[in-house]
Design a protein around this nucleic acid. Structure first.
Length: 917
RNA sequence: GCUCGGAUGGUGGAAUGGUAGACACGCAAGACUUAAAAUCUUGUGGCCAUUAUGGCUGUGCGGGUUCAAGUCCCGCUCCGAGUACCA
């Protein structure tokens, strides 16, 4: 009986389904462990060989933990709402639910073939009403919450109403869009609508006028993390800034907690750093600058120490201040400039590094010297950060410097000895000058001293600013969660919780309506709330993925997102595996979402993902053929010098080890039917390059094909063997034979010619050593996610046992259990062959015994002055003195020592004897 | 510009400061075979030797610490990823 992976894998996959092997329930007698993959968006293209990398790693870890006796939660589901299905629907009229369902089927088929140990009874789909009921529920709760800065947590909005009724805004410290002030009396006199407007200023889910990323091609707004360099991440369409009224989540209220939380989680430094940058905490001061009309405005600065170097002020074109402060003489020019910058896309604005701006005609007063400072408008100041206005210190800020040089504004240096003839001096170091009371201080001392003075004079205050902005939460799209919101007199109200879920209605087309409303405006017979209209926007992609890890704990609960019991048992994700692309999107939003639910008492942990591992990307390895210019003749890679050739991408599936399958190539494309070839050694060798894995490069490798050819166990092992998990690496099918060969060798330890070889003889010392070396190495490697070296360890062990002709049950049992997380199908089969009646999943992870690993004699490298010369063997228990003596008496040593004197002999335990001469 | 990674044979990659190149691919030679494939055995960083348990050299570049450096420290070069008018 040969290693028939096809039959084995099919049979055990069926066994696992029939016996519900991987179903888990809460079990207080066992410690829990939660291993989670970032759930996939089921795209129409199916999985390629790069997708399962993280899933394989997490499956190995989950199986390992299970063998160690943990109760392991290892679920899977689908992030099923998304743009591609909707774009496809617009083109074809096909309902996105149908394409999504088909894609999910396809994904499931592919995933099942890989032998993952998911508990599919816990599957969730974000587009399932039973699931999104809880997405809507959380939104409703956010709507009815505000953030109290004193208690640093979300509180019910009713408490705020109560406080307004009692004392107005007195003593209020809450996160808001703009600070408001009114008395209890004024509050009570407000109309219902006015009260709602005030509350909107504080809600955690609020309707706000903000600058949004508008993507005309997609017909919707996008969050910051959905835009890269002025283009939408999905589709790559241009994005422009636009002021619109949109649903927002007050993520910014949680900025400090999101920052602090990073300290207590086990994520990579680079990912934490990315999040820190995204949150962008900066300490500084807000300062008030009065204008000539007796008005004024605030600016934010981190460099309060440079206050005496301010020579002008700059406003963002989008800022309301720009129009307010413009004098009549300048109005036309300023208006024109503002219009012009509005027209620019984000992309153009970034690409255009040239200096532009226009003078408003008005002046601000320097808060210390009283000097007039001209106020300019320029697009290098952003409306969205700080207050949308800056004090310009050209000597010590490169952007202000460029602006000052361009418009010939004065530049005052403030640091002794700095050279500002060519560029500004931006470093926060040196000794202050030209700065009155700050003169002689270092920058480090001057910053707090300046702020102290600012506060003393009442012209400003200390302020911590965050770059993190509120998440824009509406999409003018069809395929997403509807908002459980209706409008009464123009103000939004939530649907009662017992009416959830508000299901997504059918529409005749997936395009906006003729009047420009989102596609939901087309819904006929959609339920209404007492005749009031419903919100027509839908929620963004990250809505459904923000709390899915909680839902897996208790996926069929109809009363709550997750029960107290289930949440109390599973608590948080112990290991989360996924790509870095979610660093500033999903991983921020779900941390925020969890913290909100923590404030509500729904989630019992402050951080959702205790440990996070980012698997690297698997790139494609493209193959090329070289067509001789103007002919249908192709020249082999090493002969192409001397020909004028055009490299052409060729499907990697008709190339094996860079050798082209010529027949397959002829059939691949009618164009090549009569192609001729210039061969080397009778073969056509292709060129290659590392590129992104994509259809257009013909380098997509489908896991189904690999499984068909080698089996899932080989694919699993090979993906791990490819290199370190966290590193990006190209897929290269060359080499997979080695891993497959290893499995066949393992098989041959059990069977020869269809006969089972297993015996019950006592294992020898060598055999025990071989297998215990493996147990130790693999245990250690799995803990450190070093799966590639584990695979090597298996190969060494099997080679050793093969050489020893070891077919002993006790030794092979331990080998099989170690192999089970990596190659579960063959492990099951061999476990059964060993006479076990249960599945290998019920086995226990073996523990190595150091006794078996001890050496009788140990080789020491003998080196002179650090250069190794030869090797001597000593008994394992040899003392340092004995070793020294033998070394000094040894003939070879005399050769090296000669007539020189020995200064020192250093015996490094178990490794080296170094003789210093 | 800033932040974080990385640089080791023909290739992917191993090395708690302690015999660099594990393991695998590829390549070469041999065995089996009418032949090929598959399989097995041996060799494989480079240079020089080969009458052998031989010599020299070697982890991007330049310094340093150490008995000992791929590994630690300082200064560069190059590559990759992320991020950016963030005041």
């Amino acid at each position: 009986m040969d290693y028939n992976f096809k039959e084995i894998e099919k049979r055990w996959q069926q066994y696992w389904i029939d016996h519900q092997t991987y179903k888990v329930t809460e079990d207080n007698s066992k410690p829990k462990y939660y291993v989670l993959d970032m759930f996939p968006y089921p795209s129409g293209a199916g999985l390629h060989v790069g997708h399962p990398l993280g899933y394989i790693a997490s499956d190995i870890y989950a199986r390992y933990k299970r063998l160690q006796g943990f109760n392991v939660l290892h679920p899977m589901g689908y992030d099923a709402y998304g743009l591609p299905a909707e774009q496809y629907a617009i083109q074809t009229g096909q309902h996105p639910a149908i394409t999504t369902e088909q894609n999910i089927q396809r994904y499931r088929e592919q995933l099942d073939k890989m032998g993952f140990s998911y508990d599919w009874s816990r599957e969730v789909r974000t587009c399932d009403p039973e699931y999104y009921k809880w997405t809507q529920w959380a939104f409703v709760r956010m709507f009815h919450s505000y953030y109290c800065n004193q208690s640093k947590k979300a509180r019910p909005i009713e408490e705020l109403v109560e406080s307004f009724t009692q004392q107005g805004t007195k003593g209020l410290d809450a996160a808001c869009n703009e600070p408001l002030e009114f008395t209890a009396d004024e509050w009570s006199r407000k109309s219902e609508k006015q009260k709602q407007e005030v509350l909107m200023n504080y809600r955690l889910a609020y309707l706000g006028d903000t600058m949004v990323n508008w993507c005309a091609e997609l017909g919707t707004v996008l969050a910051n993390d959905e835009v890269s360099e002025g283009f939408s991440i999905r589709g790559g369409y241009p994005v422009v800034q636009k002021r619109m009224r949109q649903w927002c989540l007050r993520v910014s209220a949680y900025a400090q907690r999101l920052l602090d939380g990073l300290e207590e989680i086990d994520w990579s430094d680079s990912l934490k750093e990315t999040q820190r940058n995204w949150i962008g905490r900066s300490e500084g001061a807000v300062m008030h600058f009065a204008t000539s009309e007796g008005m004024g405005f605030d600016i934010f600065t981190t460099r309060a120490d440079t206050i005496f170097g301010v020579t002008f002020m700059v406003l963002a074109p989008e800022s309301d201040l720009a129009e307010q402060l413009t004098t009549d003489e300048q109005r036309e020019e300023v208006q024109e400039y503002i219009e012009r910058s509005k027209m620019k896309t984000e992309r153009e604005r970034m690409a255009d590094k040239s200096v532009s701006g226009v003078f408003t005609g008005s002046y601000a007063t320097h808060p210390f010297t009283g000097e007039p400072l001209p106020i300019w408008v320029s697009d290098y100041v952003l409306a969205g950060y700080g207050t949308g206005a800056i004090m310009a210190v050209p000597a010590h800020d490169s952007r202000d410097y460029a602006f000052a040089k361009h418009f010939d504004l004065s530049i005052v240096p403030l640091i002794e000895g700095c050279d500002i003839s060519e560029e500004s001096f931006d470093a926060k170091e040196g000794v202050m000058m030209n700065s009155h009371f700050l003169d002689g201080m270092t920058v480090e001392q001057a910053i707090p001293a300046a702020i102290d003075e600012v506060e003393k004079r009442g012209v400003g205050y200390r302020k911590v600013n965050y770059r993190l902005r509120d998440a824009i939460f509406s999409r003018q799209r069809y395929w997403g969660e509807p908002f459980p919101i209706y409008y009464k007199e123009g103000m939004p109200y939530t649907l009662p919780e017992n009416e959830l879920p508000l299901e997504l209605p059918e529409v005749d087309k997936y395009l906006p309506t003729e009047t420009g409303e989102p596609p939901l405006g087309r819904a006929k017979n959609w339920k209404t709330m007492e005749g009031y209209p419903l919100e027509m926007n839908t929620m963004p992609g990250f809505a459904g993925s923000s709390a899915y890890y909680l839902r897996y704990m208790d996926p069929r609960n109809e009363e709550a997102l997750v029960s107290k019991e289930a949440n109390g048992y599973w608590r948080d994700v112990d290991l989360y595996i996924g790509g870095t692309e979610h660093a500033t999107g999903h991983l921020i939003y779900s941390r925020f979402w969890n913290k909100f639910l923590y404030d509500l008492g729904v989630s019992c942990e402050k951080e959702p993902f205790k440990k996070l591992v980012n698997q690297g990307m698997i790139q494609g390895r493209s193959n090329f053929v070289f067509r001789v210019q103007g002919t249908n003749c192709f020249v082999s890679y090493n002969l192409k010098e001397g020909y004028d050739v055009t490299p052409i991408h060729v499907d990697v599936n008709i190339v094996h080890n860079d050798v082209l399958d010529i027949e397959a190539f002829r059939n691949w494309n009618p164009e090549y039917q009569d192609a001729e070839f210039i061969l080397e050694n009778g073969k056509y060798i292709c060129g290659w390059a590392i590129e992104k894995m994509s259809k257009s490069m013909f380098n997509v490798v489908n896991p189904d094909d690999i499984i068909d050819r080698y089996g899932a166990d080989t694919l699993r092992l090979y993906e791990m063997f490819l290199g370190p998990l966290e590193q990006s690496k190209p897929w290269d099918t060359n080499g997979i034979d080695g891993v497959h060969r290893f499995l066949r060798k393992t098989w041959s330890l059990f069977y020869k010619g269809g006969k089972l070889l297993v015996s019950d003889d006592e294992p020898t010392k060598e055999e025990l050593k071989a297998v215990h070396k493996l147990i130790k190495k693999v245990s250690h490697d799995i803990e450190h996610f070093s799966f590639n070296t584990s695979v090597s360890a298996f190969m060494i062990c099997v080679n050793e046992l093969g050489a020893l002709k070891c077919h002993k049950r006790s030794v092979l049992s331990e080998l099989v259990v170690c192999l089970a997380p990596f190659a579960p199908h063959i492990a099951e089969e061999l476990w059964y062959a060993l006479g076990n009646q249960t599945t290998v999943c019920d086995a226990r992870w073996p523990v190595w015994n150091e006794e078996f690993l001890k050496e009788d004699a140990f080789p020491y490298a003998i080196s002179f002055n650090g250069k190794s010369r030869f090797v001597l063997e000593f008994p394992a228990d040899a003392t340092r003195e004995e070793i020294e003596q033998v070394v000094l008496d040894h003939e070879n040593s005399k050769r090296w020592i000669g007539d020189k004197t020995v200064k020192k002999v250093i015996v490094v335990p178990k490794k080296i004897v170094n003789v210093v001469i």
